[in-house]
Design a protein around this nucleic acid. Structure first.
Lengths: 120, 120
DNA sequence: TCATTTACTAACCTAAAGGTTACTACTTAC
DNA sequence: GTAAGTAGTAACCTTTAGGTTAGTAAATGA
């Protein structure tokens, strides 16, 4: 019985893991979130900030972020029309994931460099 | 000057993030690590544990894990040959990332379910 | 004796993520 | 007068991760 519960728990964790990776696992998703966090709110501004991203991809990432509740798209109908993307508070829930990934990545990079030096 | 340092820092964080996602961002990578963690050490055993993974993909994931220092491949030349995959201590460094992803995924799932209920 | 298990690999195929180019219609700056 | 900026979209192409099928060779189980 305990076994049933624990495998059930385990399955849920795996699902959660896959959900998380599905939402933030895209090549550009986290970079767009970071750009928004850094105060870049307008389309072309964001695109200029993120080296290598195309308008098409940025557009689709922003749509996904909107659907997932990370971002609000605000349109100011004027001349010219101004569109602003606002990072919602829900995006803050990613903080732990983000910093865990960054610090692991830094650690891993150092390890890889150390290994390369050993080979010289 | 401060600006230079902080953008430099920021670039490093982004690189670290991308490195991390590159290493663990594959569809099956974390699942294989979890299977190994749960004590499954042999190829077919791991494959049976992970629903839906093909031999080809498992084989390539294990190779990547070996290259990245997460896993040791041990061959016991006998009749029959027995191959065992051992999770190295380096894999433990992923714990924080793993649990951050799992708990975020759980939280997100609950939020999505709540939202669906509101729509009924 | 025939199926199954072991740990894979080769060859092929598909789907989807992402990249490229061109275009919108309007405005401002040079 | 024209180049550049505004926020994108349409149509197309490429890359690649991953999926599928079949097969290895030796040994055990029914």
């Amino acid at each position: 019985m305990e076994n049933v519960i624990s495998t059930e728990k385990c399955r849920n964790s795996i699902k959660a893991l896959e959900d998380a990776m599905y939402v933030i696992g895209g090549k550009w998703t986290l970079r767009v979130i970071i750009a928004l966090k850094d105060g870049h709110t307008r389309f072309n501004d964001i695109q200029r900030t993120i080296d290598g991203i195309s308008a098409k991809v940025l557009s689709s990432v922003l749509k996904d972020l909107e659907e997932n509740g990370f971002v609000k798209r605000k349109v100011d109908i004027g001349v010219p029309v101004v569109v602003e993307y606002e990072l919602l508070s829900y995006a803050e829930t990613l903080q732990e994931v983000l910093s865990a990934l960054v610090s692991w990545g830094e650690m891993h990079r150092e390890k890889v460099i150390r290994k390369q030096e050993e080979l010289v």
